[in-house]
Design a binder for these strands. Structure first.
Lengths: 141, 141
DNA sequence: CCTTGAAGCTCTAGTTACTAGAGGTTTTAT
DNA sequence: ATAAAACCTCTAGTAACTAGAGCTTCAAGG
């Protein structure tokens, strides 16, 4: 039995975020006390931890909703087909993660180049600004 | 002399985005034709290219606004102090980029681990779901 | 010149995943 | 009983766009 504050503490998720997840249907609507306060169970905590963990791993809420449908937390028996679908979602996420890494690495190299040139050209116009102002000086594309 | 559509094509920036940048003050308010259509000059194109380039490099709009103030595009003479400030902004951005890369790499490893286990445990409960449901199985923190 | 379609206009609101605050009620601890 | 903490709903904001409605202007072709 948890109040929303207790659930928040146990799951490292903020109270308004928990309400948001309920609003968008990611968490089920909980029972209420006589004073209209939400009452959560252990299953809610497990489900919320699943969600937060998925967010930490970069899955968007839609994907997490799908994964939840495949999991035992959504009253659906997990079977072989669902396992493959969850795996597919994770693979998409992994590919997207690598793509982001590559992009960021390219950007880091560009920024490094910009800053190295800054150090070497103390007596000249700022290279950071030069490079931003002139796309030809940029090597990433 | 550019119409907004011409400016958009020349800068690879969408028309509504150009209007958005004007709304938030990142681009100056342009002259208008007798028919109330925006008329842009070469300087506007240079400025917009600067902005887009900064966005590509991951600078947020606030930082870009600051960089623009230091640049010749904002009618301010660039001087030594401004060069240092631009460099400082770029350094912050670089550090943030490396931090994001590290984070994404850690996440990628976790996803890889999840998926490897999936392949090896075809006859068992899906590891993707297992790991998401049980935080203890997760090695990143 | 006229017509039509393309391009432009402002305004409102949506996207994603939260987050903040106002103004109120309930619970808890002293 | 009282005061503070915790809870409630609702509205709106954050960042950086993006979409669409309903209108006007422009340009090209007949």
């Amino acid at each position: 039995m948890f109040s929303i504050g207790k659930l928040a503490a146990a799951s490292h998720c903020k109270i308004p975020t928990i309400r948001y997840y309920e609003d968008i249907g990611l968490l089920p609507t909980p029972r209420r006390s006589a004073g209209n306060q939400r009452i959560y169970g252990d299953r809610d905590l497990l489900r919320l931890r699943f969600i937060r963990h998925g967010r930490e791993l970069g899955f968007d809420l839609k994907a997490i909703g799908q994964l939840l449908q495949f999991s035992a937390l959504d009253h659906t028996a997990s079977n072989h087909q669902h396992s493959h679908q969850a795996e597919a979602i994770a693979k998409v996420q992994l590919a997207a993660t690598y793509s982001r890494i590559a992009r960021l690495q390219s950007l880091a190299e560009e920024l490094e180049l910009m800053l190295v040139n800054c150090d070497e050209s103390n007596d000249h116009q700022c290279q950071v600004l030069e490079v931003l102002a002139n796309h030809q000086l940029c090597q990433h594309h």
